[in-house]
Amino acid sequence: MLTTLWLLLSLAVPVPGFYTPISCPRGQKCQLALLSGNDVLLDCPFLKAYWYYHYSLSKEGWLIRPSEISNIKVTSQGNLAISSPLPSQTGVYFCWEEGNTEVTQFEIDFQNINFLYVTHNGLNEMPLQNESLHVGSKAFIFTRWEPWQVCNRCGVPGERKRLGYCYIEEPQEKPMSCGLYLRDQKLPHTRLRPEMQVEACLVPCEHSKEMDQPQFIYDYSQLGKLTDNLWLDCPLASIYRPVSWEANNTPLTWQNELSGKNLHSTLDIPSGGRQLQIFQPAIYRCFVEQEVVAQFNPLGALKPKEPQTRENKTQEPVSKTLSIPLWLKLLPFVGTVLVLGLLLLKTLSPLSGKSRNRTLLVK
């Protein structure tokens, strides 16, 4: 009973997450592109930080307190934690210390993760090509790539990814991320999207560089809830970190995902693989930066079913519980009450006729 209650309580508490730290030199203005839907932590170099942000890039925008927004919080260290940032939260974030005129600015373009374009070199897929854009002056759209992340596994075949952001460049001008360049203009252009490129890799393990990350064990077998599918969330994972999954020691790769071969699971593209939708019981493990951080055992919570098609696997999951008659649901409760009543009568019966009082302890 205690184990079941602990499991229910642990599921009610959010899975430990990872906020990607973003820093900017003291008193400087930093311009960067990030992805919506993925948590970030803006570092303020001042001891007692005050935060404001210009929520709109149009001239009619104004400053408001981030604390007034549900997904933006100021930490005890004075940093700004943004959970699942929205594309509409593209703007300028200011931090400064009281009585100090020196201000650090983060001009951030949160590019829409739902438009992420994913390719895999093993499938001979090509990234997006440069395209022209006419918005008053001639410019072209291109992808600015970040460096490749490290391989998500070591000692065995793995994969690595790199993220690319939409940028626009005019002749004789510095490139600017698409959201900051276009500001409040809405253009129906299919090239205005971020990218993720994946390729296979194989690297040896370097034990001296192990991160020694904590491990989490999630056992769903005692919850008594039967569903068609579950979403698993890998703790400490982020699209900005190397992440991988395996089912019964079999890797769930991006190459198989993009080619439709992960028949009983779906790697979630918007989270960069941090989340996994499963349709079949197995022992699932997730790795972050080559280390296993969590194991999931849904053997008693999943109802086996046919794998969904590629088109249906990307839809939002709909949980379905097993329909049980009301009298059958109440049967365990009624039985428990009857058993406790019989035990109570049996315990109290020897006490009749005896002058000595006794205390009954119910644990």
Rank of each mutant, 00 (worst) to 15 (best):
L9R: 15
S319D: 09
N262L: 12
I239M: 08
G260K: 08
S244G: 13
V243Q: 12
K59N: 10
I324L: 14
E98G: 10
L361N: 15
T314D: 15
R358Y: 04
C154D: 00
C151I: 05
C154W: 00
S352E: 13
F18D: 05
V92L: 10
V318S: 14
D268N: 15
V13L: 11
L123M: 04
W254G: 01
F46E: 09
E102R: 12
Y19R: 12
N152T: 09
A81K: 15
M196N: 06
P45Q: 06
K48S: 13
L187Y: 10
R183I: 06
S88E: 15
Y218T: 14
S23G: 08
P214R: 09
F46S: 15
I239L: 10
G27P: 09
N249W: 13
N297P: 00
H54A: 00
D184T: 09
N262I: 11
Y117E: 11
S323T: 00
W231E: 02
Y52W: 08
C30F: 01
V288C: 05
P251G: 07
R26K: 13
L63P: 07
W51I: 02
N71C: 09
C24M: 07
P298H: 01
L343P: 08
C44V: 03
I72A: 04
D219V: 07
S137I: 06
E170P: 07
P214T: 09
L331I: 08
I22K: 05
L182H: 05
N71G: 05
G164K: 02
R193T: 09
R241P: 11
L9E: 14
N229F: 09
P304E: 12
P85G: 08
W254V: 03
S84M: 10
L163E: 06
E289V: 04
E60N: 06
K346E: 14
K303H: 05
F279I: 00
R26I: 05
G179Y: 02
L63D: 02
E210Q: 14
G61C: 06
R153N: 04
G335F: 11
L128Q: 02
G155R: 09
S177C: 01
K209D: 03
P14W: 11
S319F: 14
V40P: 03
C151Y: 00
P350D: 14
V292D: 03
T336I: 11
Y53R: 07
V15Y: 01
E289A: 13
N130F: 08
